[in-house]
Amino acid sequence: MMDERLESLIYLLQRNAIADPRVLAAMRDIPRDFFIEAANLKPLAYADEALPIECGQTISQPYIVAYMTERLNVQRKHDVLEIGTGSGYQTAILSRLARHVYTIEIHEELHRLAVGRFKALGLDNITALCGDGSKGWPEHRLFDRILVTAGVSAAPPDLVGQLGPCGAMVIPLGKTSSQRIALVARAETRVDYQSLIPVRFVPLL
């Protein structure tokens, strides 16, 4: 039954122009229901909708996970910084594509649950911290890709500053009622912004 629901979801993603075979393969490989604790919500794991999780947060709609991942264009050689681990589902998807994923979550409970899930699934290319993600990774370093899974009015300067040469960041920008996904790309001495689709994310804390 789950296979049927998963294949229906993959078909829906393809119908909605998610075309990268690596992203689709990652969505197939990572069991979304494993990242949902509430038993009454597990049957909805493969519906294309956001669902509530602990600490008043959400696990993002699968289409948005796939869309943001595809726009980030993660390659196997890349180190990725994720701001907002949440349930860990998006982190796990990224781990299938990147060399290593560094992820920060401000809520201790979410951090603890996500780390347990990573271990249970054998995802050994993830380093997870509990802390303030708006400041970026605590140790000064550059990342090939950055993904932010919470909304902000403007891209935090500390995150932009951790973009490496030719680096890219996908981030929801704007007020909660009028957010849009933005692609932030570093090109030599400048940083370019491209506005993409409208979304609604919880605010970055």
Rank of each mutant, 00 (worst) to 15 (best):
D192C: 10
T176S: 10
W137S: 13
L173I: 13
A187L: 06
Q162Y: 04
D192S: 14
E188V: 12
A187T: 15
A182C: 10
T149R: 03
G133M: 02
A168Y: 00
G164T: 04
I126T: 06
G167N: 06
L147N: 04
D124H: 12
W137M: 08
T189G: 15
A154K: 07
Q179T: 14
V170M: 12
R190C: 14
I171L: 00
C166F: 08
D158R: 11
G161M: 06
V152T: 15
P165E: 15
G131E: 08
D158W: 01
Q179V: 13
D192N: 13
A128Y: 02
M169E: 10
T189R: 15
R141D: 13
E188F: 11
V184W: 00
A168I: 08
T189Q: 15
V160G: 05
L123R: 10
V191E: 10
R180K: 14
V152Y: 05
A187Y: 08
T149S: 12
Q162T: 09
V148C: 05
A168D: 09
Q162F: 03
D144Y: 01
P165M: 05
A182R: 09
I171P: 03
I126Q: 10
S134K: 10
T176F: 04
C130P: 00
F143C: 02
K135T: 13
P138S: 11
D124E: 11
R186E: 14
G164E: 00
A168R: 11
P156K: 09
R145G: 04
M169F: 00
D132G: 10
E139M: 01
S153L: 03
